[in-house]
Design a protein around this nucleic acid. Sequence first.
DNA 1: TTTATATTGTCTCAATTTGTGACAATATAA
DNA 2: TTATATTGTCACAAATTGAGACAATATAAA
Lengths: 234, 234
Amino acid sequence: MDPKDYLPHIAYDSVIIGFSGDELHILIMEYHNTGLFALPGGFVHTTENLNDAVSRGLKERTGLANIYLEQFYTFGNAKRNKPAPMKKILEANGIGPEDNHWLLDRFISVAYYALINYKNVIPKPDALSDSCKWYSIDKLPKLIFDHADIVAKAIETLRDNLDRKLVGMNLLPKKFTMKELQQVYEAILGTKLRRTTFQRTMLASDILVRHEKQYSGGAHKAPFLYSFKKQKKI
Amino acid sequence: MDPKDYLPHIAYDSVIIGFSGDELHILIMEYHNTGLFALPGGFVHTTENLNDAVSRGLKERTGLANIYLEQFYTFGNAKRNKPAPMKKILEANGIGPEDNHWLLDRFISVAYYALINYKNVIPKPDALSDSCKWYSIDKLPKLIFDHADIVAKAIETLRDNLDRKLVGMNLLPKKFTMKELQQVYEAILGTKLRRTTFQRTMLASDILVRHEKQYSGGAHKAPFLYSFKKQKKI
DNA sequence: TTTATATTGTCTCAATTTGTGACAATATAA
DNA sequence: TTATATTGTCACAAATTGAGACAATATAAA
């Protein structure tokens, strides 16, 4: 990592959100031999679009590609970077503790979130990281810097956007039941929703296609499967 | 402006929105002897919080202080800065056309919008600028770089936030009539609203205090004056 | 002084949307 | 065969919104 290849003082962090069962999960990386946990992030090449850098970095660090990413806030407090944990990470990677390493500088971080289908994805850690794992949103490990704030703001934004953007689309497999869709909404909002009202609203909203009934594994009437209609271009 | 005082490649731009009569207006600066128009913006000191830099810069460039600013997007395309207009601005300020002046570099820009009471404010241009004027949102001059995109995104965000944040609060004088409030909403949304429904909704929302009737200048029944309740802290 | 005009505040009723429970249908387990 | 859990749909009540009507009233016009 030659500092000349990257824009100084500029970073990004991504909050990768997946859904499993009835909980939201977030992808967290652990750095080798440090016990330090962080959001997957990275830096921007000198002639690279910011958005492209984020896609590229996510691919490099987790193996995930073609993911819908949404920028939600830029964190710019002067003291958001603590030198101590970064030194620890550098040392664990064989980089000496010179006080003026560029990664110890102050960084502004542009934060993105992504919604992906948990089941399709087995994230793979990169060379820098020990592991790259899903954590339930209620049981995140302690994160470095202000990454906990970044996660909180991501969830807040997601909640606000829930009725305006088709977030369910990205968190579920192609075909899903009405119950699964409702569970996604409930996990994001953090509240229970009324079944009949939810079903009526979703059916009326004209965003779902109904398919044949599922061969259900449950001891009850088999539910329909649904998928999202292709988005109309406006 | 010593480049060592500022974070390289990082800028901010602010979309200052005021309301007058029935239109939204935006504050635009014109650079001396160039015919170039731009949003008021600036740079971040090396140890300064991003948010503080934006407040400071706005004060320096327009004389406006204590203004509620909301960050809404970070523009990071590699080619969003065009060297030609920036060279013109530098030359008009007596700075030679060296090809590697730091202001000709690529910049990522964090964009903020602010809502202010048009009537209370007479903006003053700074040394760099010829003028600092309000322009109706429908009649903006051609802006440099991607500043037209930044304005468009600001309005889009404002519209989305209209029902969740108390935007009217900042655009009107302390006391105002129901009609004025409705005009703010209409200007932001770009649509007409039904008078009776709007009035009923606003009164039911429990955010307004009703005061004595206005000594009206109009040839009709005098309207009540309203102000916003103090926000409860949650 | 009287009348006309424009806007305001409020009310009413219809139309629509949402809340809530009921109930039959049905896939599996007992 | 019966019991159980969940699903899809309906019916009705409650709440919200749409749309117009109308009296009140501050100024302008006569």
